[in-house]
Nucleic acid binder design. Structure first.
Lengths: 237, 237
DNA sequence: CGGGCACTTGATCGCCATCAAGCACTGTGG
DNA sequence: CCACAGTGCTTGATGGCGATCAAGTGCCCG
């Protein structure tokens, strides 16, 4: 990555660092992991802050993280959550554009940027895979724009739950009826562009409509997936 | 791109098509252009619709486009505008995830997917460049999420104007004091997650604060860029 | 048990959406 | 040259969704 032709034709445009955080294939992962160092994280512990120099590339092994940006007066937008297998810190710039912080006790591997770049150079398929991963991120970002720009509070929460369970099903490899909420109500709110009170109310709303059941504070059972999907897609009722 | 290893490990996850629409370097462009066909577009003419099969890759030569997604009941979110030099339709999936439509009379080159893919294979640097372009898109998408999730109406418009003029300055290569608004108030609203009325009011607000001047309906002069920047960054006043 | 904290629920407020004129530019025909 | 639609933008009046402010509740861990 370091030997990417710097600038040309965009060197003066406001390039900002990028997260690529979807999964690579198993073989690549194993080879890469051999180059890395493991690190434990406590809940709330930051991995890096917005503006920090980009020195390392991270891969989450267990737990979960949040990625966020702050406005001048403290308003916060969480732009993504990360789960085991996700990559973080792969960037074409020298500063992170966001802060990354552990939600729960987590483990991650880190690699120096150089080691990671060398690995990419030695594994031609990886570059292609990285592009593929970036494409996934972009598609997700676009649906999040639709969510933030045009969906109602209830629709946002429904969409969020569906994406969380889809994600978990991808990892487990089969349909699931329940999923965890490792993040707080405030984190959910800051991801969906709402307040924690509204998240709480919409949770009650989805419960009243018999779309979901709360097994505990941080575990949700899906009762009516079709109902959730209709709501997430923006059908009136 | 067609020979990207299909699936593995993401084949069952909801992959959606992706736009890559920033500039490649001049040499690459010239080589690529030789493979393409030119097409003229009238204002409002669609290039493709959400759900259409991905058969071509496009490059905008002149004019401008909008990219949007619709919800079930007709709510619309514009996820991006495209300007000369931008690429469109580069995708890892077989269906477009959005609709692309000309804002004004425009010209674009198109390439068959196969021709484009062969070109990418024959030009190893291009793959790297594509990744770089995707990274730019991702950074832009993240700031748009902050805008849509946490900024006020006035802040959104200020941010939008700054990004439009930054874009134009990138093309022209020097600082500019004025820029065009090739899109309607409704398009601006659907990009910023607002209504056309609110866009109109915030335009008046920025005018009253002496941040901008309207040279005509579709041309803006920036009077106080620092003021706009503060507002866009979310400082209280 | 009890203290703390996150979450829920309730009451009120405000920003922006909605509804509704009014206005300005554009083109067209008399 | 002007009447006059037609269209898109602006401005005004009102309303509603979600934010804010404020209790209340349950859960976790002492």
């Amino acid at each position: 990555m370091t030997e990417l032709p710097k600038g040309h034709p965009c060197e003066d445009c406001p390039v900002r660092p990028i997260t690529i955080c979807r999964r690579l294939d198993a073989v690549t992962l194993a080879n890469l992991r051999a180059l890395g160092t493991m690190q434990r994280l406590e809940p709330g512990q930051p991995i890096f802050h917005e503006g920090d120099p980009v020195r390392r590339v991270f891969m989450l092994a267990s737990g979960s993280l949040k990625i966020y940006t702050l406005l001048a007066d403290g308003r916060r937008q969480i732009t993504g959550f990360m789960f085991p297998g996700d990559f973080l810190g792969i960037s074409i710039d020298d500063e992170y554009a966001f802060t990354a912080e552990a939600l729960v006790r987590s483990e991650l591997w880190w690699f120096t940027r150089d080691a990671f770049d060398r690995f990419v150079e030695d594994n031609p398929k990886v570059e292609r895979e990285l592009y593929r991963l970036a494409a996934h991120e972009l598609a997700a970002a676009q649906s999040q724009m639709v969510l933030l720009g045009r969906k109602t509070a209830a629709e946002r929460l429904a969409s969020f739950f569906l994406s969380l369970i889809a994600r978990q099903e991808l990892v487990v490899g089969e349909k699931q009826a329940e999923f965890d909420l490792p993040m707080s109500r405030l984190d959910i709110a800051d991801y969906l562009g709402l307040t924690k009170e509204t998240v709480s109310r919409m949770l009650a709303e989805l419960r009243n409509r018999k779309f979901i059941r709360l097994m505990s504070q941080d575990r949700v059972q899906i009762i009516d997936r079709a109902g959730l999907q209709e709501m997430a897609a923006g059908f009136g009722e």
